[in-house]
Design a protein around this nucleic acid. Structure first.
Lengths: 279, 279
DNA sequence: GTATTTATGAAATATTATTTCTTTTACGAC
DNA sequence: GTCGTAAAAGAAATAATATTTCATAAATAC
């Protein structure tokens, strides 16, 4: 899908004088145009309906109605959805707002997250003999997900909230530590990062803040949705969780593709095991 | 902006037989409808154009063209992104596809999930003395999230994968059991549902399939993304997880608003506790 | 300044949507 | 079952809208 507004903008110089008037009006008031018919728009701009239709044909194979439909697809900006969820909102409004927020968070994460960092992290995991992961609170859920995903492809990951146990684990070579902390300020995580470095163990961190204390202590930082608004919102709790899970999924995917055939076989085998013994 | 798909889903029961056929077709193929005219759609569905138009008037003040425009605003379009993630895809393509899929999943969940069921579930939780939750595999992660969220507002929830322990817990009155199972076919969950009912304990289930065995054994079913494609996709693993977490979040939200002031105070208090003792 | 191309609008036409009106179907009471 | 009534659905008429045609005007070239 290419943007019709963008395409108008690009071609506007090549349009005739009257067509250009129409094109400019569309650029300026796309939202309004959606609820106009060709005649009304022609009147408004001071040209004939034929001109409007002619321009429309240049922009969309489906003529003027097609232009309206495309505009509608691009112009879905209801400002109210940007807003925080309000305790007085009925559930259907909450749903709409959340849908919007989650989409926004994933989009942001796609922008912020560095592909190369993901690949490097996946490689570290692949080469390590042992993998340890730690997260507290909501992040412990993400750590558990990470563990599940990697076990399924034959890469056992230790996930525990027992920091002493982790400290023991990362005191030997060929190990990698994955820390998960939304804020990047959890004291326990920072301590673990220090211990890891004392033993020359690389640290991968999943966090929303590139500038956080933990990020500075990490070898690879996987940053999700690094926006300021993140801080103040109730909905941030769930959207951050989703962003973190999303990062884990991409990491898992990257690991998977490093040796696809072998790993695909392992996934098949593991679901086979479950079906055989538990169904 | 009211979602037209959501509104169709909500009202579909109140439509007449022929209207319902049209409505169902729109729900199933919104993208296709956008490039159809009323006659074509009528033909395709096997009703008269008048029926299509009558339904359109119920859905949009601007009649059938209005419906198409609204559908266009709601329906993300790029077909290539519908595709399954391919092991040969570079990470940036994976990101795009996933962004699309996640958005789609949340959108679908918004349509499928019944607001009233959520409210009833929240009420059950509120009235219960004890809440138990169970999920296996990826669903255990969702159960853990549910536990965390509710503990934070002073509603302790027992989450464990020890089915014997849960069986003990649900053998007494004033208890509610929340089962989480993507497929709705997990044997352990079904067993727990049976036990609960023997003791007159209500069962709330979070699943993707309204027709699953577990759904049939449940008092309240919270259905997320009830689409068939769900089955066959690798990405479904993560998107289902997100859909489930999203349902939990809405449930939590619904619970929260039932007694907002009190609960808001509890949230404040709980984050205060964390800051006081752990920072 | 004239010829030729290009742009434009008015009117004719085609398409699409909508309404009206008739027929059919469903539902109850007997 | 059958009659009566109401709701639903379709066919056809009408209205709205989009599109094309064609005549004319403006711009450009020579």
């Amino acid at each position: 899908m290419k943007s019709i507004l963008f395409s108008i903008h690009k071609q506007i110089a090549s349009f005739s004088k009257s067509e250009r008037k129409v094109a400019q009006f569309i650029l300026d008031n796309p939202q309004q145009v959606i609820s106009m018919n060709a005649d009304t728009l022609a009147d408004k701009v001071g040209v004939s309906a034929a001109t409007v239709v002619r321009l429309a044909k240049l922009l969309s194979a489906d003529g003027f109605p097609g232009v309206k439909i495309q505009l509608s697809a691009e112009t879905k900006v209801d400002d109210s959805l940007y807003m925080e969820v309000d305790p007085k909102d009925p559930l259907d409004v909450v749903k709409q707002k959340m849908e919007f927020r989650i989409g926004h968070t994933i989009e942001q994460t796609n922008i912020t997250l560095d592909d190369d960092a993901v690949h490097r992290a996946a490689k570290l995991i692949d080469q390590a003999d042992d993998v340890y992961t730690y997260g507290l609170g909501a992040s412990s859920i993400v750590a558990a997900d990470l563990q599940q995903k990697f076990i399924r492809v034959g890469k056992p990951v230790v996930q525990t909230m027992d920091t002493h146990l982790i400290a023991t684990g990362i005191a030997k070579p060929e190990t990698v530590l994955i820390l998960i902390s939304n804020t990047g300020e959890t004291v326990e995580s920072q301590k673990l990062a220090d211990i890891a470095h004392e033993h020359g163990i690389p640290v991968i961190t999943i966090t929303h803040s590139r500038k956080s204390s933990l990020a500075k202590k990490s070898d690879i930082v996987l940053v999700h949705d690094d926006s300021e608004e993140n801080e103040k919102l109730r909905t941030a709790a769930t959207t951050s969780l989703m962003a973190q899970l999303y990062v884990v999924d991409l990491l898992y995917y990257s690991y998977l593709t490093m040796n696809f055939n072998e790993n695909a076989a392992k996934i098949k085998e593991s679901s086979h095991v479950i079906r055989k013994y538990f169904k």
